[in-house]
Amino acid sequence: MKLLKFAPILAALIISGCVSNPAVVSTNPLSGSATGDKKAYESFSITSVDIGYAANEAVQQFLEAPESIKPGGGRYVIAVDEVVNDTLKTFETRRLTAQIKRKLRQSGRFRFSNAVGADQTKAVLEERQLQDSKLFDQSTVAQDGTLAAPELYLTGLIVVDTTQSGDRKKQQLNYAFMLEVVDKVRGYVLFDSYIEIDKTGSNKNFAW
């Protein structure tokens, strides 16, 4: 029967419509594909496991740099500048910087300022407007000239490149988390980190 000729094709159509980017393998050593956890979710996008890994690695690379120790002792005051997500999927870059800030603060070498920069807490500046108010005990109001300006700025960029295997059956997304800490006076890059995560999987669909 001629109609039967098309049955396997139609069946394949039905099956193929239900599959999307299966079995993504990541080079992140904490990912499910690396740890062998078959229940772990893996995708072409940046996951929370990737953000945690990148934050840990960045902090480790920062702290290994001798320049991260302030000459003469004490703590550097640092503020977060711009960290740009230039990939194929939106995610909140503050999830990365928040973890980095926390770990660097815990190292005892840094204080983070929220008076300026991307993480600016507006209330810190608005507080100064209370200086003329009779409603407030002026000894408890922040006075002019008390804010500490940051000495360093944390800045960064997350990018991705997509490549295909020779037979174009596989695609690889190469993520790079590039973070730098810049001396505000001289403009020098005091220390930096570069963390790569590769994700490989089927080239059947676009990876977002």
Partner: peptide
């Protein structure tokens, strides 16, 4: 519209194409 399919042996479009002959 996520399909990329630039190397798959039997792309969905081709399957659809053949599958609707009758």
């Amino acid at each position: 519209l996520m399909w990329k399919e630039d190397s798959i042996d039997t792309p969905e479009e081709a399957l659809r194409f053949v599958g609707t002959t009758v």
